[in-house]
Design a protein around this nucleic acid. Structure first.
Length: 107
DNA sequence: TGCTTGACTTACG
DNA sequence: CCGTAAGCCAAGC
């Protein structure tokens, strides 16, 4: 087998992203730790991963999505009733409620 | 072959 | 809350 780990990491990241339930989000760091790679790799894989993945459910540590698509992400958040800190000109998810890792950690 | 860049994170002041 | 620095791994030039 050649470059097995490389494929595995990419598939693993995409798998985790797809496994994020609607209405919840996951941070790059969480996915990075889950897949065993760096946080920047998650972003790169998402960028090159394809369009069949819920990229809007992946946000940074501040709870903000990819800024170039913040408006589109906000539309998705509203559509899926994702808990977010409602600001007029800002898109920010409430990680305290929306973070999958938080829900898994809590009893 | 090697430096720079990037959908990032965390820590420190 | 903001700026700077170090860590991280791969792709691009």
């Amino acid at each position: 087998m050649r470059s097995e780990a490389h494929e595995t990491v990419r598939e693993r990241v995409l798998e985790v992203v797809r496994s994020i339930p609607g209405g919840r989000v996951m941070t790059y760091g969480d996915i990075a730790r889950t897949t065993g790679t760096g946080a920047r790799m998650v972003g790169r894989i998402l960028h090159n991963g394809g369009h069949d993945i819920p990229w809007w459910r992946v946000v940074n540590a501040e709870g903000r999505p990819y800024k170039d698509a913040a408006l589109a992400a906000r539309a998705k958040f509203v559509e899926e009733a994702t808990p977010m800190l409602d600001h007029s000109n800002d898109v920010r998810v409430d990680l305290a409620q929306a973070s999958v890792r938080r829900l898994q950690t809590l009893p």
